[in-house]
């Protein structure tokens, strides 16, 4: 049984590296990534699971890191926006003007990246469902839609 009774040293696998953090059992992954690992790409947009700005990829799935305990992430593979290395979705976001202020961008990129990995050829309704998890307040979303479609078409 895995048990953490109090603030302890935990081992996380983040962006392919094993990292050591000090966390309370009640700490959320978002805060640990930001405050301990300086991975501030994931943003605290609502801390309630509603906006998606904190989305990271955990074992291949998009996860809102504000609603995951750091303790839950032990033993899993976490990818943050800082772990994307020239992923096609980054370039597509730039070329399609899929962001303005940039605050929601990390979360959207992670949702898009996970989608492209899990469903390289999704029907439109699946794209809609996945990306409805995030909020962008600057763009019209049309630009984000164009960006993900560019990435998916490259996968064909």
């Amino acid at each position: 049984m895995f048990r953490i009774k109090e603030k302890s040293i935990l081992h996380l696998n983040v962006n392919g590296e094993d990292r050591e953090v000090v966390a309370r059992p009640s700490d959320i992954l978002l805060d640990t990534l930001r405050n301990q690992l300086a991975l501030t790409g994931a943003k605290p947009g609502c801390e309630n699971g509603d906006c998606g700005a904190c989305t990271v990829i955990v074992d291949g799935w998009p996860i809102k890191s504000c609603l995951m305990l750091t303790a839950e992430a032990v033993g899993k593979k976490i990818t943050t926006v800082e772990g994307l290395k020239n992923a096609p979705v980054q370039k597509a976001f730039i070329e399609k003007f899929a962001f303005q202020c940039g605050y929601c961008t990390s979360g959207f990129l992670m949702a898009c990246h996970a989608l492209a990995q899990k469903h390289p050829n999704p029907p439109d309704y699946v794209i809609d469902e996945w990306l409805q998890s995030n909020i962008c307040r600057c763009t019209s979303y049309e630009e984000i839609g164009e960006a993900i479609r560019v990435v998916l078409s490259q996968k064909q």
Binding site: R3, I4, K5, E6, S26, L69, E72
Partner: peptide, 17 residues
């Protein structure tokens, strides 16, 4: 951020839980 402490247990079996 959760403003209080709790303990986290992740049992591996029904019995442990």
């Amino acid at each position: 951020m959760i403003p209080f402490d709790f303990e986290y247990d992740r049992p591996g079996t029904v019995g442990e839980a």
